[in-house]
Amino acid sequence: MKHKSYQGRAILRYELRQEVRCKKKQYIFPMLLALWHCILQWNRTKGSLEASLYVERFLEGMPTVIPGSMNSFLIPGDWLLFLVVLLYFNGKFAKDFTRDMGLQLLVRSESAVQFWNAKWLLCVYHVCLYYIAAYICIVGFVMISGRYGAVPSGMLDKTLWTKVGLQLVLPILAMSALCIWQLVLSYLTGFTISTLLVCTLLIVSAYFTKWYLPGNLLMKIRVQELLAEGIGIRKMVLYTFFLLAGGILAGYCRMKRMDYIP
């Protein structure tokens, strides 16, 4: 008899293959949104925008909302749409192991813990692919529009890692943590309520610039504001790690206690 971890790895391999094979249409949306962003930036600046700014301005969010001001209710649409669609796809397949092929995989895993390991790793993989799909589209647009040479040399200096952290690592970590918590919540409350709860958290984040509200870590402008306030990027990354670890732990507990019925 093979070890349970073999089954866990086999399930993960299977799910990763399926993610690319059957769920690839999900990744069209972030690409379209990124393309729309590029075209908008191109038109606004009449093609004079520097290449790196196409990346930096994508999902940049908005500054802290001042209550009573003109923009009190203006949450950035592209930012919200990008994240809500990701949450929708994440929640839609959250309980797919309670029926059909998913149920066959679950029983063959022989261990709920191994199965949860595969599930949350898949969730992180899904978030990474979603973000990467969008950024690939932006880089493609920049290259095609002939502005690749305009990448400033500053991108390659010692601040590079802070930039990479801001553009990719921090949002992917924060979004992975949110998606994992959404999975756990969907096991407790179902798809609709869990998705609504996480979306509400995102919207609340837009109104309060607090480093512990994960929505802020998904907006580049807010992260810059938090950095200016003296909250280090390391603290934010560590916080998202804790959030992620908390979600994984809660998932272990929930998977052991839940009924696997649709």
Partner: peptide, 14 residues
């Protein structure tokens, strides 16, 4: 968590 060696067909096959 689950029986070590089990084959199932529960409700509709998917």
């Amino acid at each position: 968590s689950f029986p070590h060696s089990v084959g199932i067909l529960i409700e509709s096959p998917g």
